[in-house]
Design a protein around this nucleic acid. Structure first.
Length: 587
RNA sequence: GGGGUGUUAGCUCAGCUGGUUUAGAGCGUCUGCCUGUCACGCAGAAGGUCGAGGGUUCGAGCCCCUUACAUCCCGCCA
């Protein structure tokens, strides 16, 4: 390994121990903290590798005045600390540097916020001084962890026989999905490059090119509104394989993910099995397409129990096509009235429901809904809920009811403490519908990206109701977070044209929008499939950060600005002229 | 584009139902003291257009309206 020694240091700030006692050493780093006792001065010196305490016996007037975060070089002798003075919190806590000489390398001004400690600091200040923020312990650790995870993932992919590729960042706008970032072309008047939303077509072309197994730690760009878990530019572990069926692609995820968590979260309880859940089942039982499998609550459809009952609101709605979904809350029968009222508020405010009906199954069935139902119906509901539980009812049009029930399931799981944060559970969600009906104009459109393969023969595509056709497409979900999406690709030009045809596109359109890929399919394309893992989100889960910006060194803020570099910014008139652009007036 | 929450010292926050003349505390900064601290301690000082603008009121940090900014969510987006 390359030595870390230089004219600035003989050791790092994290490596000296009792073994080094008596040695004369030189350290360089940031003044983390000073403790001034008059004629005795302690300086904690920090670098990437750790913190070492330096003592100036007799004090030092000049050093006392220096600001924290100034960079200094200290030469001194390693001495063992007295027993009482040992600091077990530091790896170097058994020794200290009895200092002779020191020298300022660079001075720091008064800081806009403290590097030491874990004070809350406003986001905009943190971004404006990201280099200071990155010195702080938590963020510094997160970034180093990300570093290790990416190296580990890359090693795993190599071991599994994948080859690593780079694909263009200046490419063409692809017609589906998110908005692209555009880059004007200087050489081609009025034309634009687009930054890739993902290297989708390139990785497929690499399959057609015969490379068999592709992977890339790929930057992806999407010009959409941001969230805590979304960035303008983010990274995916992108992979693609030839001559595979769905289970072959999924095997990569099953091999990779549980092992990843076990490697980087030592106290995690990781379940190796990755159950398959169909999209329809996920929407019914979990109320979303990314169920958190740690949550034991299962949603039931109880439409038939309420049909024709005396509970008029539901019975009438059912006649008009609504469904009723029941969400059980285990061991909640002793909750006070206020708990139920709060959930009712939540349902109205957050879920947009008219209200939240419920039955409490204590000694007897209680609650306003129970009064309206006969014994037989109550017995059936009791069976679903279990003893000492309550059952919440959501009645609405199917998709809305399912989604609201899913959100309630998540909230109950959290509120009732049913989720163990140390646990990591996975599942596959598959059998997504290939087509869906456009709510606005009633037309048939593709649900997923246009590259996925239908689970249907050409003949079935011709004869079956398109809405019943499923896609060879899957998501991998970890603890309720979608961490991977993939599937088999549509490599057969005939099938591809048929699918586009059903969605209302003609041959010319396909040839135009997918020119390169479509052409390549005319010359022998292997059956292929692949997927992509969201690296930023994975790192978040591993280090326990809810926000993806906490695991990226230089993220844009929620408005897509980089306050440190000042992007996006205006450019000169000449630069605009070079790329043949005129900025329109606002409004 | 829409909704929730927030904005008081460099930073974190308190400030009751609108009414102690001078808006408080901790951290940081500055000055002084301190030989065993490691969140060092002690004494003192500086530091405020209460985001901005308008309104209600005898009186507004607090109530109302407008607006800016931040953040989280919906739409959008894998």
């Amino acid at each position: 390994m390359l030595s870390l020694k230089s004219k600035y240091r003989t050791h790092t700030c994290g490596e000296l121990t009792e073994k080094n006692v008596g040695e004369t050493v030189t350290l360089s780093g940031w003044v983390h903290r000073k403790r001034d006792h008059g004629s005795l001065l302690f300086v904690d010196l920090r670098d990437n590798y750790g913190i070492t305490q330096c003592v100036f016996d007799g004090g030092d007037e000049n050093l006392e005045k220096i600001h924290p975060e100034s960079v200094i070089k200290i030469t001194g002798t390693v001495v063992a600390r007295d027993k009482e003075a040992i600091n077990d919190k530091l790896p170097t806590g058994h020794i200290e540097i009895k200092s002779g000489k020191w020298e300022v390398l660079t001075n720091a001004d008064v800081l806009p916020f403290q590097v030491f400690g874990d004070d809350d600091v406003p986001e905009d200040l943190r971004y404006q001084y990201r280099f200071l923020d990155l010195r702080r312990e938590k963020l510094h650790k997160n970034i180093l962890m990300r570093n290790k995870i990416i190296k580990w993932l890359r090693d795993q992919m190599w071991e599994m026989g994948f080859s690593e590729f780079q694909t263009p960042l200046l490419t063409a706008d692809s017609p589906e999905g998110a908005r692209c970032f555009l880059v004007p072309s200087r050489l081609h008047h009025g034309k634009f490059y687009a930054l890739p939303q993902a290297p989708q077509m390139f990785k497929q072309l690499l399959q057609v090119s015969g490379f068999d197994r592709y992977f890339q730690i790929a930057p992806c760009f999407r010009d959409e509104d941001l969230r805590a878990d979304r960035l303008l530019e983010f990274y995916q572990l992108d992979l693609e394989m030839s001559f595979v069926d769905l289970p072959d692609v999924q095997a990569v995820g099953e091999e990779l993910l549980p092992k990843l968590i076990k490697t980087f979260v030592p106290d995690a309880i990781v379940s190796d099995e990755v159950p398959h859940i169909s999209f329809d089942d996920a929407m019914l039982k979990y109320g979303c397409d990314k169920p958190d499998m740690r949550n034991p609550i299962l949603i039931s459809d109880v439409t038939e129990i309420f049909r024709g009952s005396d509970f008029g609101i539901f019975a009438n709605a059912i006649e008009n096509g609504a469904v009723v979904r029941a969400v059980p809350a285990p061991k909640s029968s002793d909750k006070p009235r206020s708990w139920f009222d709060k959930l009712g508020d939540y349902a109205v405010k957050e879920l947009g429901l008219g209200g939240l009906g419920y039955i409490v199954f204590a000694e007897e069935a209680k609650g306003p809904v129970a009064k309206k139902l006969d014994e037989a119906r109550i017995a059936k509901l009791h069976e679903i809920a279990g003893d000492n539980s309550s059952l919440f009812f959501i009645c609405d049009e199917e998709e809305k009811a399912a989604k609201a029930a899913g959100k309630l399931r998540n909230k109950l799981g959290e509120d009732l403490g049913l989720i163990n944060p140390k646990e990591f559970k996975f599942c596959w969600v598959d059998n997504f519908p290939f087509f869906e009906r456009n709510e606005e104009d009633g037309s048939i459109q593709m649900t997923h990206n246009p590259f996925s393969y239908p689970i249907a023969t050409l003949e079935e595509l011709d004869t079956k109701d398109p809405l019943t056709i499923k896609a060879a497409q899957f998501d991998m979900v970890m603890n309720g977070i979608e961490i991977c999406s993939g599937g088999l690709r549509n490599y057969n030009p005939e099938v591809m044209l048929k699918c586009f045809n059903i969605a209302g596109y003609d041959v010319e359109n396909v040839k135009k929008n997918f020119a390169g890929l479509y052409t390549s399919f005319q010359y022998g394309a292997p059956p292929h499939g692949g997927c992509a893992f969201g690296i930023d989100r994975l790192v978040c889960e591993i280090v326990g950060e809810p926000a993806v910006r906490e695991v990226v060194a230089f993220p844009a803020n929620q408005r897509g600005q980089d306050l440190l570099m000042g992007s996006p910014n205006e450019v000169s008139e000449q630069q605009l002229r070079d790329v043949h652009i005129q900025v329109r007036k606002r409004g």
